[in-house]
Nucleic acid binder design. Sequence first.
DNA 1: GGCCGTCCTTGATCCTGATCAAGAACACCG
DNA 2: CGGTGTTCTTGATCAGGATCAAGGACGGCC
Lengths: 244, 244
Amino acid sequence: MSAAGKAPLQCADCPIRHRAVCARCEQDELQMLEDMKYYRSYDPGQTMVWAGDQMDFVASLVSGVATLTQTMEDGRTQMVGLLLPSDFIGRPGRATAPFTVTAVSEVTVCCFRKRPFERMMVTTPHIAQRLLEMALDELDAAREWMLLLGRKTAREKIASLIAIIARRSHDGTSLPSRHQVDLPLTREAMADYLGLTLETVSRQVSALKRDGLIELEGKRRIVIPDFERLLGETGDDSDGGPLI
Amino acid sequence: MSAAGKAPLQCADCPIRHRAVCARCEQDELQMLEDMKYYRSYDPGQTMVWAGDQMDFVASLVSGVATLTQTMEDGRTQMVGLLLPSDFIGRPGRATAPFTVTAVSEVTVCCFRKRPFERMMVTTPHIAQRLLEMALDELDAAREWMLLLGRKTAREKIASLIAIIARRSHDGTSLPSRHQVDLPLTREAMADYLGLTLETVSRQVSALKRDGLIELEGKRRIVIPDFERLLGETGDDSDGGPLI
DNA sequence: GGCCGTCCTTGATCCTGATCAAGAACACCG
DNA sequence: CGGTGTTCTTGATCAGGATCAAGGACGGCC
């Protein structure tokens, strides 16, 4: 993690620019963030935060993939969010975590101690505005996902998930016509995200492969020969679906 | 929630206190809100905002019930939010509405012109903070709903919906042991909320009635003889579920 | 009152995805 | 290399909820 050039618009030595806090920060504000920050790492499968835990920090995901999940007493679980690098974790103004956060791969987060962060929010209004923007983005994504969970077929769900991961892993840039995607999720995690069982996920992935909509390289790497055609299977209108 | 002491903490002539904007406003700020506000009314079934519409206002629901819905080309629709009095509508900083808003009953909203409201947000930081809090509440509720949509059975979904409406219509106050709830939704709207068909909703409501968990007075009024027992059917742990 | 439209209920049947079960592919490791 | 554990695939069967269909309840209105 090398320090970036001069007067960087990012926390000094983070490899990514934290979307949440740095976009418009001045040098002295960046220094405040430096003073309250520290790094943590997690192994694949490790739970970073349990639902209900006291949280004395907020954080930004630097590298790796993590999930937000919710579990019923009898073990039924539903993933309610997928965290990729630059995503924000935690709630200023809330004492406890509402959902469980689990590392899917090797994960590094950049944490900010919560009290100082909250104090800084009061004096630095654009941070609250940026957090509001992010919360509204997440809210829109969650609501799009509600349509998927409530109304889409298994095939549409799988196609939507692959399309979303493809789009998110390219983060805004247009997709090459023949695109490779590294699925960060096991079949079981996909099932928990989509409200399906892992057997159904496996069957539908096989079906999409049989129909030539995707190709598999190993279990976790997917090649999308024709992205438009995959989008046609999602049930979404042409402009594409959510960006969870 | 009556006005605390002097200098009323609410917009001058609104019958409710807007959760979003007034909590900590001083007299001069309330005057600014007065200057940018106007009222609109809608009839039952009337669509207030279409997904994709340009929106030049934000608003607070004063009376009535409205829904936030999303529709696929083939007509499958999913409700993604239920708006009750004091709920906020619209997004500062966003040009267009992401979802369709429809009045379920007679609805009155108090609108604030968006540009002045956004300008006010810059100079009045606690407004952005309050909006952030509300967005986080909605986000939590949406994610709880994802668990319902993805993992609960039809019976659990119905029980959860009734429990939520019961809790929300009493807005925080504890429930009397034998509680009446006015269902503001048709069977079809309930189905769209729960990711079911209206026939399944009807069957499950009948089943809950048959099992003595609810009683019906007419089609739309429900009596809950034992709220705890109803909660036992929701699949949630004892502390109760979301508050959408 | 009688008619009509909307909303709701109930029944019969079908189908998608869940469940139960077995084995294959693969990585890791001694 | 073979053994072991995890992840994935595929098959057989089941069941919950969707779909198709008919009719009932209720309110509004002439």
